[in-house]
Design a protein around this nucleic acid. Structure first.
Lengths: 238, 238
DNA sequence: CGCTATCTTGACTTTATTCAAGGCTTGTGG
DNA sequence: CCACAAGCCTTGAATAAAGTCAAGATAGCG
């Protein structure tokens, strides 16, 4: 049922869903496999654009350094997500592995030729980009208006949902967040993502634990004890 | 030199740049002209997706209502920008006219057929979506990490740049912001856009005036007296 | 001319940051 | 195996920033 592209790991519902078998084979030939370990930088701001790459496993961060010298994370990439694209101008952000990552990289020339040949692939890329835009806008609302507690709670909810379906390409679709998971980010990185300091992140996690909403068994593990309360906390204004 | 699509107003460098004359004619036939006045709502969150529309003149806001009941503006649309697209799920945001607006609307069926026929049009839409994504991410950095003063200063700079080239489709390209312009947003809307209260926006504008950076001759007019200082203020952390 | 909207300003409160110290892990070398 | 160091995380107290509440000022508009 769910076909998987054996060479590049792209799953049926992600990229392959709207491509025929022969197109799949063509795409697979284009892809070059690559592995990263946590901390590896795939793209650095200002780099000439890489054509396109697909995250098959792991989590990456999209970040830039602000004028003040600290890092602002503007997005996360999970398995199935794309980096770059046909027209990307020189990169505006660093793209760095948060966990060990597996990638399928498409060289520019071959990728562009493939887009020209297979209109459905371009259509798919457009769809993905629009999804990414929608995510960025949802994030914007959270960052712009929510309290520290709501940001942290919302982040935990999102991460739980994403990690629960990390091997399922229909992302954003899981109804119930994973009961427990390990954060791929340090407190400092969570702060950079949420626009908060490391101390505030830590305090809010402690408060959520005190309220019985989550448990922090140690390390970067998160146990969601009360998903409804977590969701409610994410919607609070104050 | 710069061709303009007479029926829908789309300019050479915006949409028409990569389309042939015959494609242009086809696109023009698809478009239906429409006018809005300030406050008109084109799309309401939850609406079935409209196929696609192109803003020809004026400014619109993309906004949603938060759980707390106040409005969060996640983006602005200037002339040349697109609303909707081939796969848009039911709308997540309201799209409302901030000024009087002229639109070129493409009905779904015809628009999709046109995309299928003209691959370059789809390419262009992808490009636009990626630009929009980049804008959203830049915004994210500003909202997430910047002080109230930096947000307001950055907003004024952006708006000046956009309004300076409002009739030039190569947006984001102007080197020098307009020396003076009229804000298409109320203080309250600026607050919703920047994630600040109306009082804080007002205070920061007053402070920028006191510092000789801008002038506020009345109404919603903004005069930029010291563009360099404005840009510097936008980069401040504190 | 007065009404209503919007905008500005002031005093006070809440929130998150900053600065500072201490605790918990993890990994390394004795 | 233990001691120690380094990094990451937590907690507390003081500070700064933006929000809230409240009162006036200004500007449009009938």
């Amino acid at each position: 049922m769910a076909r998987t592209c054996s060479d590049c790991g792209v799953r049926d519902s992600a990229l392959c869903g709207t491509l025929s078998d022969e197109e799949l084979v063509g795409l697979a030939k284009l892809g070059v496999q690559r592995r990263l370990v946590r901390g590896d930088v795939l793209v650095r701001a200002g780099d000439p654009p890489l054509a396109c790459a697909n995250v098959q496993a792991g989590v990456m961060k999209i970040a830039s350094v602000t004028a003040a010298g600290d890092e602002a994370i503007v997005g996360l990439l999970y398995s199935g997500d794309f980096i770059g694209g046909p027209f990307a101008a020189p990169a505006e952000h660093d793209v760095t592995a948060l966990t060990d990552v597996e990638l399928c990289m498409f060289p520019r020339a071959a990728f562009e030729a493939s887009l020209a040949d297979h209109q459905r692939m371009e259509r798919l890329l457009l769809e993905r980009t629009m999804i990414e835009l929608a995510r960025a806008r949802r994030w914007l609302v959270r960052i712009g208006r929510a309290s520290a507690r709501a940001r942290v709670a919302g982040f935990l909810g999102d991460m739980g949902r994403r990690l629960a379906v990390v091997n399922d390409c229909r992302r954003d679709a899981a109804a119930v967040p994973a009961a427990s998971f390990e954060l791929p980010l340090s407190r400092s990185e969570i702060g950079d993502l949420l626009g908060l300091t490391i101390e505030t992140v830590s305090r809010q996690l402690t408060l959520l634990r005190a309220a019985g909403v989550i448990d922090l068994p140690g390390g970067r593990m998160i146990v969601v004890r009360d998903a409804a309360a977590l969701a409610a906390a994410a919607d609070e204004t104050v």
